[in-house]
Design a protein around this nucleic acid. Structure first.
Lengths: 331, 331
DNA sequence: TATCCATATGTAACCGCGTTCATCAAGAAA
DNA sequence: TTTCTTGATGAACGCGGTTACATATGGATA
């Protein structure tokens, strides 16, 4: 490894001068600077960011904890976050938990040990108490797509309750009165919120939805719709808490000769790219994942650099209905 | 920040003892060790991995360069790589390039400066010469899904040529003789290989395919199939170099009353999760992305740790046909 | 009892870089 | 000529750990 000392020797100056020539070129004599530059290129010297971070007590890194990489949900969040963080001159360090509580703790420790100056947390397995502990101990941490009232201004999230309400209103407005909902695993924060918003809204309108818990997977949606139609054949509209489950349900219906949306209407959640290529094209609730990731990255950066006024960073994002062809008006 | 010195003071021992109590507990007296442990938990001390890396001259980190996070292609590769790397006790540091050559260079520099002990490279914009330079300068680097003959044993990749051939053979075996191919942007390495394999195989069988270059996007496939059918109405089978384009094409056909596969057969590439929910379900060529990522991670780790015998790590992976319902037998 | 060895701990140098502070040369002011 | 600035540079120390080497202690051995 070629170090600063090598460059200094080669250029016939001291290490200090090399350091200055790199970090503050203006305060070093033009002639000397050229000498140093030449030595750097000749030796193909690359500053050691690790050592530099140690000396500066700054890593210029923002950590981010997610469940997994192979999902467009997390991929979009990461994409938004990385773009924002990079634009601010920082690096993003992502760690996945594989949806295990232990994985979440490991990721947290790992990111802190690697001196991340702030960390963005997307955790589903840990309970509120432990998470609150984290947020309390590390004031430079941001919660993504989860809400803790005590740390309200460090939470960046979709208003899932309103998202659920949106689905309810949409189905109700289209005339549906026999309505069901297929949820994801209730351990997920977003599931509980979407469910609450959906159910409340319908109850307000005098409709009691049938609820069935599933697993966010295609097969789960497939099975759920079958169970549902056996139990409650009068149902005309179903809200699936993600698009994958809706896709499975559409398949199940096709195989059974049930026509969507003529016989049964469906609305999903997320607006994954598939949604618009299903047959019929899926009406769904879209969430601005990229924006959420970017906001979380910005807030983390602000906390890391000691910016106090973060009022320009949006904390709560709204979902919107994307109307396609899977919900039909009933009379 | 609580440092080792703090712990030492608290426990009434020297820094060296604390260090040893952490890294080599067995060589320190049980009593002392307990003292140190107590101090560590009392102070909530976390070793500074950055400083530790400096002292050890090892970061235990493997870098990985990808185009973007928000794609299941890269997501799956990352997933496979991270799992493998974590299992070996290393960390993965991912950087995205946003498909710009400059982004690739920046990522490369950044990963080296952060002292990654090896780096996995997935680059499409850089030409072979520059890439070869990298591979030459850094013997601890691995090329993923790209092939450079001079660095054969550091390339982990799908045999795209054979993948293309597979599609050709499949269509030909089903009786198709008027065949077209819709490719991705020819700047991509995989595109050139898939095209070569496909075309060669058909020429061998006396068929000359119509080729049209597109962009790997849904809309591109939509447009391509329309152009194609105008130009060559006799075509009965089309190979799309990824599933997204096939999805777009299916949509275009549905809108025009062309029945897939009765009127027109289609085969895709990748086997993205959508493929099985399209209507009709898409017959496609699957590539084992997770395995490829894992192999790249393993090889990088082997290089990083100086393992010389890496013959047990698979370098070339094979695609396979996943037959569903979008290709019909013709007589 | 003197010697030796094993074990346990402390001391200090070092990893690669940043930064303070002293130094020095040269030009301006007196 | 002397003194005071001013700008450029180098020596030394610190960042938080690791580790070779030195030191101290106690028991076994001769």
């Amino acid at each position: 490894m070629v170090t600063m000392a090598d460059v200094a020797r080669r250029a016939g100056v001291s290490k200090a001068t090399v350091s200055r020539a790199i970090s503050q070129p203006e305060i070093v004599d033009a002639e000397t600077r050229a000498l140093v530059q030449a030595a750097i290129t000749q030796l193909d010297y690359r500053p050691n960011e690790i050592a530099r971070g140690l000396a500066n007590r700054s890593s210029k890194t923002i950590g981010i904890i997610i469940n997994r990489f192979d999902s467009l949900y997390y991929g979009s969040l990461l994409d938004g976050a990385e773009k924002a963080i990079a634009a601010l001159g920082f690096k993003m360090l992502a760690e996945s938990t594989r949806e295990r509580a232990e994985g979440e703790r490991e990721a947290w420790s790992s990111l802190l040990e690697r001196q991340c100056e702030a960390v963005v947390v997307h955790c589903d397995s840990l309970d509120d108490a432990e998470l609150a502990n984290w947020m309390h101990e590390r004031p430079k941490s941001v919660l993504m797509n989860r809400y803790l009232a005590a740390f309200e201004d460090r939470c960046i999230h979709l208003d899932n309750r309103r998202g659920g309400a949106l689905a309810a209103k949409f189905l109700h407005a289209k005339g549906h009165r026999n309505i069901a909902m297929v949820t994801g695993p209730s351990k997920f924060y977003v599931v509980r919120d979407r469910s609450a918003g959906f159910t409340e809204t319908l109850l307000d309108r005098g409709v009691t939805p049938t609820v069935i818990e599933s697993d966010f997977l295609v097969q789960g949606g497939y099975d759920a719709v079958i169970t549902l139609l056996e139990k409650e054949p009068s149902i005309t509209g179903i809200f699936f808490q993600n698009d994958e489950m809706a896709a499975g349900a559409i398949e199940a219906c096709r195989e059974r000769g049930i026509i969507v949306p003529d016989d049964l209407s469906m609305i999903g959640f997320d607006d994954i790219p598939v949604a618009q290529h299903l047959m019929p094209k899926l009406t769904t609730i879209r969430q601005p994942l990229r924006d959420i990731g970017a906001a979380a990255g910005c807030l983390a950066h602000a906390l890391a650099t000691g910016v106090t006024d973060t009022s320009d960073i949006q904390r709560v994002f709204e979902a919107e209905v994307v109307e396609r062809a899977s919900v039909m008006e009933v009379k």
